[in-house]
């Protein structure tokens, strides 16, 4: 009898292990529209939500969405609190040392400056960027400009609005709708090309998951299913594959 219970328990455990393989927790920031944001129903939405759901469906995975602060998004991935980062994260050599990326699902897209006045000299300006982004690295490397870092994308824009900084540097796809909405703000200067495109971040030890998502992204690119999605969220001018 005892043996029966034991083997039943063992069976249940192995079944549990098999099932848990198929749930992939997708980590995102939820504060970077239109890439990812929390919609009015309190759900994760945006380009990456739609893309992620599509990728999971193609790969036959059940996906669960989790939000995490940008600052600690990589530590929580490597410690296993979720399995992927899908948060508009550009592929850079520095990040690649700590985690692995799938191939890019958004081609390298330009970053832009948003300011409250047209005649700002970007070479000597005080410029806001979100902590730990490629834009922050870029501003830090601009000679003469002063970098001010903020924890969330929203705060970087608020800083321009209340005059704490002269301009903000962020992905153009994020800043353009902000500039359209607020007549007091405008895109200034020339766009800068940063990063190697945006990909899904996975743990370095998770090669299987990386290959699964890579295959699904390739499939979407080949079928031409990815470009319409990019155009839907980022407009007709967006870079496509």
């Amino acid at each position: 009898m005892n043996k029966l219970i034991l083997s039943a328990a063992a069976l249940a455990l192995t079944a549990g292990a098999a099932a848990s393989q198929d749930v992939v927790r997708m980590g995102t920031e939820g504060a970077y529209p239109p890439y990812n944001f929390i919609n009015d129903d309190g759900e994760v939405a945006g380009f990456e939500r739609e893309l992620g759901d599509e990728l999971c469906e193609r790969a036959g995975l059940t996906c669960e969405w989790v939000t995490n602060e940008w600052d600690s998004i990589i530590p929580n991935l490597v410690s296993g609190n979720y399995d992927t980062i899908i948060a508009g994260m550009s592929i850079t050599p520095e990040r690649d040392e700590v985690i692995d990326f799938t191939q890019a699902y958004i081609p390298p897209s330009p970053s832009a400056f948003l300011a409250a006045s047209e005649d700002i000299d970007l070479d000597t300006a005080v410029i806001a960027a979100q902590t730990g982004t490629i834009q922050a690295d870029h501003v830090a490397s601009m000679e003469g400009a002063t970098l001010v870092e903020y924890a969330t994308p929203d705060e970087t824009v608020a800083a321009v609005r209340n005059g704490e900084v002269d301009a903000v540097l962020a992905d153009k796809d994020f800043l353009a709708p902000v500039g359209e909405q607020d007549p007091a703000l405008m895109l200034v200067g020339e766009d800068v090309a940063l990063g190697g495109g945006i990909g899904l971040g996975v743990r370095e030890s998770d090669t299987e998951l990386k290959e699964t998502f890579d295959a699904a992204i390739t499939e979407m690119k080949e079928e031409g299913a990815l470009n319409p999605l990019i155009v839907k969220w980022f407009g007709d001018d967006a870079e496509t594959w």
């Binding site: 504060a31 529209p33 944001f37 919609n39 009015d40 929203d154 608020a158 902000v178 909405q181 607020d182």
Partner: peptide, 8 residues
């Protein structure tokens, strides 16, 4: 935080 047109 400010909400652009993507939001309802």
């Amino acid at each position: 935080g400010m909400k652009t047109q993507v939001y309802e």
